[in-house]
Design a protein around this nucleic acid. Structure first.
Lengths: 162, 162
DNA sequence: CCATGATAGTTCACAGGTAAATCATCATGG
DNA sequence: CCATGATGATTTACCTGTGAACTATCATGG
């Protein structure tokens, strides 16, 4: 009897006509994500960088090259105004550098500094550890099966533009 | 080749020593959750209630009785200060009512109004529809399997206190 | 070659979340 | 019975995110 079963039982009493079975997947996915995010964010405490800011840093790191601000907004899915603010903080912290784009002076090229890169390389593996330890109770075959089933769901939801 | 495979391929180039396989589950779960939440929140647009506020309303609705403010904080996992603010807005909107607790005058009893209840009953089934349609590409047996595997993961992450 | 519309990013104004301090009430042990 | 510490909720002060307005630059068609 996990959290979701308990909630579904409550709904069954109040709204017996509503079929809440999709919550077995949907609500569990949302709750697991929330708990994971919270762990990952705790792991960053005292490091003077938030999960949202780390998303910007990892986008840069895994791209392996400076990015336009616009590329960061599409990769992170966050609106431009948010990215501007995060870049302000990250730049103040010395983790990224902004430079006007040569060819298009409206644009901005954002690059990781050496410290920014070092921070990602130190923190990112630990972030993944949280995902790994969440799977500790599943044998490899079931992990793979879970990944496969989630890919089917994700394909249906994911927007095509990135 | 979905979004997560693309990201993993990028990491494999930059940090070949890091095993990113847990992301097949972890990152997919987090991305699916984000997309679902975003759909569910769009569905509420113009209804003058946010997802966070709806969380409070559904906690009350499925409990079937007035709740202490403290019960709402544990059920939603949000800190007390946030709940106080949401209750302020919900009360102003006429969706809940606050009353001092009889036995313990420090406490507050929060009850759904008739409008609050009507709003939940109208909106909640549509919220679940989003979860249902995300599963459209999975036959019933695989949905059940997916739910079962997620339950194993959730059991590991879920705090015991609620 | 402009003038005009499109595009990239920033600024502004405001909404919402949160930790810490505060206020009111309760419970207890001396 | 208080006095004292615990508890429930609110207030305060601050921070982050976001849509909309704005600024600077680019592109193009007349």
């Amino acid at each position: 009897m996990d959290y979701i079963e308990r909630v579904r039982a409550q709904w069954a009493e109040r709204l017996p006509d509503v079929d809440t079975s999709p919550a077995d997947v949907g609500a569990r996915v949302r709750r697991i994500a929330a708990l994971l995010e919270s762990e990952m964010s705790d792991d960053l405490a005292g490091r003077d960088v938030t999960r949202a800011e780390l998303d910007v840093l990892t986008a840069l790191r895994r791209s392996g090259r400076p990015l336009r601000a616009g590329e960061i907004t599409t990769m992170t899915g966050s609106p431009g105004a948010s990215i501007t603010k995060r870049l302000d903080r990250l730049e103040r912290a010395g983790l990224v550098e902004r430079a006007v784009h040569e060819r298009d002076k409206r644009g901005v090229l954002v690059a990781l500094t050496a410290e920014g890169e070092a921070l990602v390389d130190e923190v990112f593996p630990r972030q993944i550890e949280h995902e790994r330890s969440a799977l500790a109770d599943l044998p490899a075959a079931e992990r793979a099966e879970l990944g496969r089933l989630l890919a089917v769901v994700l394909r249906r939801l994911d927007p095509k533009d990135y």
